[in-house]
Design a protein around this nucleic acid. Structure first.
Length: 578
RNA sequence: CGGGGUGUAGCGCAGCCUGGUAGCGCGCCAGUUUUGGGUACUGGUGGUCGGAGGUUCAAAUCCUCUCACCCCGACCA
């Protein structure tokens, strides 16, 4: 491709609304342009990267026995009503009517459509297992799209669905996909971790997320430093500690309760500073509204509530902190002074394991500007039960071994779910088994965020000058820079090299623009093509060109006539399976 | 939805407080110059100042409403 003919409008300055690295470089490099919040054009460069990601996904999924299809973007409401998700899904499901007034939605995911497809024509156990996938634009009307391609409303996703005769067979399909995912992300050149995860709105009972490790990641994950355990913090189990917490071990456990004045101090940090007691000696009393009912939930002051665990425990569909008015009504005090001692107008009071046996703790007094000290669990208040309710944190004990959990932030680029019969039962997707009995198929579903991989790869592979593409994803393999367009020998050598590389089947971008060397170098760094061949007036006099990897490393002078074979060798080495 | 912020040329910004000719840098076009890390200079193109209403002799500037976008919290590939 000749750059004079190639639409890659680069920007010298950072666009103002781009904060994260991938967004900045994708905009500056002329890969993407914004159309609306969370909706982007993919220009030729980004399209090429997407094609490469898709290619890797196709190869690996086909190898694993999955078959590609295209499913509709616009889906009828009836299917969603049948699965029950028309009511369950929130406003991120974009709904609209056609001219006849029939209701539709833009597909945020395709379980309904695929189940409808499979139930129509698959009737026998002989046709199973079946695994169908598609790569398509999805739309989710996200509450807050952000960070460019990392969280758009419209995004390209690969979604696969497996259908099996039994749970055992379905778990085999699951493992097959899990292994395919490992191969896919490895070939994408990503540093990733598969972690145990919550199943969220899709539903199901077993699930792993594939997280790309990056400081800009939105997801918090923990991983054991001793064993293979890794999980999203939302999901991470916590080992119930053997001995009760000792918030203030120096003091006698029979300290009596006292009321202290804590004017204006609402947060644990504020009260902690005021009373000069560590956050771990506090019991945080959260007033939670779950499906309209209020509950008091106690966690230790230095811990955070895991609302997903709470949601599961309560069997609630919607859980959030109660608003100011309801807190006032339930505790008789403004937000920030709730406590477990005395009258609390709530349906139940639950606590995290770590609260069990706490002595001499600090709690809210259910009275404006006051807290209680010297409060002991069991003596001064009782809860309905202790449960695993808090978020895992760095330094917690691993639930599987004696190791310690370490926290990382990650970007979720893939997710595999074991679904069971949730959808097949609701939508009557059944088959006749060998005994002639009608049974629901056992399903799994498997997503990969294609455009998100592009962003995540940049988050993980860049420097201060631009993108450094992993070789598997690069839009071109080689960038040829003739440095002086007015020196015929230079132009001639570049053209010759361009033709030779192209004929060798290598994707090459030739910077034939009439620009100064400096501009070409800057743009080349920004675009991030793995190999750069600079052709200058000095070197070409001796028949040499300069070969340089974008990812660090020194430039080397190589004879023009050997450049193609050297590049071929380098590319082979870079793309061969590690 | 709650909190914070921004809309002025393709991009990045100043001007607004204190109303009176719409500016700067980059890019783009023409030319001279330069030629291995965004060369220097000359000339030029380009703007209903997000939109609507109002106040005023006069509005980018003051007032009201509205839309869009960004950032921080509750959702997800």
């Amino acid at each position: 491709m000749r750059q004079t003919r190639f639409h890659a409008p680069t920007l010298k300055e950072d666009p103002k609304d781009a904060e994260v690295v991938s967004h900045r470089y994708l905009m500056r490099g002329g890969y993407i342009r914004k159309v609306a919040a969370g909706i982007y054009d993919l220009l030729p460069l980004a399209t090429r990267v997407v094609r490469r990601i898709e290619g890797i996904i196709r190869e690996e999924l086909n190898r694993a026995g999955a078959q590609e299809v295209y499913l509709p973007a616009v889906q009828p409401a009836e299917l969603w009503q049948e699965s029950g998700r028309w009511a369950f899904y929130g406003p991120e499901l974009l709904r609209f009517k056609d001219r006849k007034g029939a209701e539709f939605c833009l597909g945020p995911t395709h379980e309904e459509v695929i189940v409808d497809l499979v139930r129509r024509d698959v009737r026998s156990w002989r046709a199973l297992p079946l695994n169908l996938y598609q790569i398509q634009i999805k739309f989710r009307d996200e509450i807050r799209p952000r960070a460019g391609l990392m969280r758009g409303r419209e995004f390209i996703m690969k979604d696969a669905y497996s259908f099996d005769v039994s749970e055992a067979a379905a778990l085999e399909s699951y493992d097959l996909m899990y292994r395919a995912y490992e191969r896919i992300f490895r070939r994408c050149g990503l540093d990733f971790r598969a972690v145990e995860a919550d199943t969220g709105a899709i539903g199901g009972s077993r699930s792993h997320e594939f997280q790309v490790l990056a400081t800009s990641g939105e997801d918090a994950i923990v991983s054991c430093d001793a064993c293979a355990y890794a999980a999203n913090v939302e999901q991470a189990e916590l080992r119930r500690s053997e001995q009760p917490s000792e918030p203030d071990a120096q003091r006698p456990s029979d300290e009596s309760t006292a009321r202290v004045h804590t004017p204006g101090a609402r947060t644990i940090d504020e009260v902690s500073a005021l009373l000069k007691r560590p956050a771990s000696s506090f019991i945080k009393t959260l007033i939670i509204e779950a499906d309209g009912k209020l509950h008091a939930v106690l966690v230790r002051g230095d811990h955070a509530l895991n609302d997903i665990k709470l949601k599961k425990l309560l069997g609630a569909t919607e859980v959030h902190l109660a608003d100011e008015a309801r807190v006032q009504a339930a505790t008789g005090a403004p937000v920030g002074f709730a406590g477990p001692v005395g009258r609390l107008d709530v349906a139940s009071m639950l606590a995290d394991h770590a609260v069990s046996g706490m002595v001499n703790a600090v709690v809210g007094a259910n009275e404006s500007d006051h807290h209680l000290v010297g409060v002991s669990e069991g003596r001064d208040f009782k809860v309905q039960g202790f449960h695993d309710l808090r978020l895992a944190a760095d330094g917690d004990a691993c639930p599987r071994c004696d190791g310690t959990l370490r926290s990382f932030s990650g970007i979720e680029v893939g997710h595999v779910f074991y679904l069971g019969t949730k959808y097949s039962q609701a939508m009557k997707c059944t088959f006749l088994d060998e005994a002639g009995e009608d049974r629901p198929m056992v399903m799994g579903c498997y997503g990969i965020g294609v455009t998100r991989i592009m962003a995540a790869a940049i988050e993980q592979n860049h420097d201060e000058n631009g993108i450094v593409w992993p070789p598997g994803l690069a839009p071109f393999a080689v960038h040829v820079l003739p440095l002086q367009m007015n020196v015929p020998e230079v132009v001639e050598a570049a053209e010759q090299l361009y033709v030779a590389l192209t004929e060798a089947g290598i994707d090459v971008l030739l910077d034939d623009r009439d620009e100064r060397a400096g501009s070409k170098f800057k743009d080349a760094d920004l675009l991030g093509i793995p190999w750069r061949i600079a052709i200058g007036a000095r070197g070409i006099k001796d028949g040499n060109v300069e070969l340089k990897p974008r990812r660090g490393g020194d430039a080397e002078l190589v004879p023009l006539d050997q450049a193609v074979s050297m590049i071929q060798a380098r590319l082979r080495a870079a793309l061969s399976p590690a």
